[in-house]
């Protein structure tokens, strides 16, 4: 089977990549496009470090063939980082020390981003639910939960800011 061109929208910008069949979105983002905030903790769907948003929904980029995102909106941690300063969710992770080694952090922020976009005022249970597929080996999760709670209180989601 030959390679084919796949076109999708990455962080608002249209990109075109040549991919072999079954190449993962993770491999395309990291190694063809240089979006290395997409991590590779396991490459089998077990850790969540590669989480990106596809059409606003959190997706494990390590399990998704790149062809499947043709024509869709893909958002990585790079895409949500403002040119100046930080997204309020990123600031909340900083304020709550919601990381230690930082390797799981991009995935944690992306699932939290999706949660707050859909549900600007999540309950603690809803936050735990959102984080359930993401592994952190350093923090004991509590600081990460606190970061998401902090972001929700600060109105990190656009819907909440309008209030």
């Amino acid at each position: 089977m030959g390679s084919k061109i796949v076109t999708f929208v990455l962080g608002g910008r249209e990109v075109e990549v040549m991919v072999k069949p079954m190449t993962t979105l993770q491999a395309v983002l990291r190694y063809q496009l240089g979006y290395t905030a997409v991590k590779e903790g396991c490459r089998q769907g077990g850790c969540g470090s590669c989480t990106v948003l596809v059409e606003g929904e959190p997706v494990l980029a390590c399990l998704l063939p790149a062809e499947d995102v043709a024509g869709q909106q893909v958002t990585t941690l790079e895409s949500i980082t403002p040119v100046d300063g930080l997204d309020p969710l990123q600031q909340a992770f900083l304020d709550a020390s919601g990381f230690q080694c930082g390797y799981c952090t991009p995935g944690m922020i992306m699932v939290s981003k999706a949660l707050l976009e859909h549900n600007p005022r999540p309950t603690r249970e809803e936050i735990l639910d959102a984080l359930a597929g993401n592994i952190c080996r350093c923090t004991g999760y509590e600081p990460i939960v606190a970061a998401v709670e902090g972001a929700a209180q600060a109105g990190a989601a656009p819907g909440a800011q309008r209030r």
Binding site: A37, V38, E78, Q90, G102, T105, I109
Partner: peptide
């Protein structure tokens, strides 16, 4: 290293 970690840089 906090900013690097939360931005993925």
């Amino acid at each position: 290293d906090g900013i690097g970690h939360v931005t993925g840089r």
